[in-house]
Amino acid sequence: MIYKLTYKLFSERSVLIEWPAIIDENILNDVILFKEKIRNNKIKEIVELKHAYNSLLVICGDDCFVFGTFKKKLQKLYTQKGPHVELRLKKWEIPVCYDDVFGIDLGEMALEKNMSKKSIIELHSKTVYTVYFIGFLPGFMYLGGLNRKLHTPRKSTPRSRIVKGAVAIGGKQTGVYPNESPGGWNIIGNSPIEFFNPKNAIPCFANAGDKIIFKSVSIKEYKDIKMLIDAGVYQLESEVIDG
């Protein structure tokens, strides 16, 4: 808790807290720790907390909000030495099938980058990615850590339909489409995993701060996993890492 933060009023009942405008894991950790600290303090005005790369939005209920006082309360909390916050972060292994059936843009990417499809797949699946936050669409993880060699501009004309589970690269980012949606990213594979299930009390398995690694699987393995998921008996591989 060492950064110089700014506090801005955002709507009648929210305060936007901002860290320096860079994408950085240390900043992410500070954002998550402050968020947990606020949550653990059970401040009665607060109804929701949400964060992104370098910002945290504190949303309050109606009619109980004086910006100046509230800001001071948050500032004090940030600098105050509190009890240690344990995050229990996890590392998840996500099966992805990079076969041409799914990786419809792999060929074009390989040509443009003068790389083989195999080396694109290897680079993509050997990196450990960090989940910065979930946003944009329900269950869409913003992942950090994509290898520079794989940075690829978004398609000039977005597709009107990208299938559920599509693993894609857009600019400096990579991610998985949790549901069918329009989109302009380059599709390199597909994961059979459910990234968002509205019927679960906690609809997404991963949390901000968690790590993700993609594991390349064959079409046959993909189909087997899919079958287990549909039957509700698939167990995603994960291990606890230090927060």
Binding site: F10, A21, I22, A52, Y53, N54, I59, F136
Partner: peptide, 9 residues
């Protein structure tokens, strides 16, 4: 900007 929270409105 770096992707950040938005709200209705």
């Amino acid at each position: 900007i770096i992707t950040s929270p938005v709200l209705p409105g």
